[in-house]
Amino acid sequence: PESADLRALAKHLYESYLKYFPLTKAKARAILSGKTSGSAPFVIHDMKSLTEGEQFINCRQMPVMEQRSEFGHVQESASEVELRFFHRWQYRSAEAVREVTEFAKSIPGFVSLDLNDQVTLLKYGVIEVLIIMTASLMNKDGMLISYGQIFMTREFLKSLRKPFCEMMEPKFEFAIKFNMLELDDSDMALFLAVIILSGDRPGLLNVKPIEDLQETVLQTLELQLKMNHPDSLQLFAKVLQKMTDLRQLVNDHVHLIQLLKKTEVDMCLHPLLQEIMKDLY
């Protein structure tokens, strides 16, 4: 009976994951490997293709592509285009925070936690969750953005001016290693819940109920991984080890954003992201 409860929890979290996250790993992998029936994503690989494609960043549906050439004629400095691209990226990130919040609320017991603790769990967990989810959209050559409509190459991201060029490379390095674990969407749903329910976040008021919730999800994840990946030895331990790398990644990310705020006079951070990053680490 206990195992049946854990299976029910796994099913529930997988359904929430599908409900709140628009681009699943399964769909992203299909697009990346060219196995979808729809058109291939628009590729951004240089400033010209960024100028052409940036209009559609954050679009769920790509407009008719005949219009593209018109945008290529606009003469702008690379620096302006980079900054505007960063703004669009931020707005998608804020939307993703909303999706993660809805997912967190669907974890049984989460909304019964102290409201201050819910805020703390999200503040500390949300960037880690987003980095994990971004890994699903990445391969060694680039990443999908805009709900899978655009593929942005890793080389192009590396070619941006400092510190923009330093933002994604550590995430690619992490993603390549993380993707080798070959988790599927149902595993990911549980892993994300485990991350959110971390009882060691600074400033938590009532740790015990959080740890109790996390323990149940951990048991579910362990069972799920054994059933879903019977031949993958020590997968549960390997997955949990990634949580240490994630904290370092978030720490570095927040410091880069703080650096950006100092060096880019025109940059204004989205208010939701400001809230999350202020006094984070």
Partner: peptide, 21 residues
């Protein structure tokens, strides 16, 4: 903490109404 995280707090409290991000 809630005061310093008004948007996050609003996202947590509003379950159905769309939040203006």
């Amino acid at each position: 903490l809630k005061e310093k995280h008004k948007i996050l707090h609003r996202l947590l409290q509003n379950s159905t109404s769309p939040v203006d991000l």
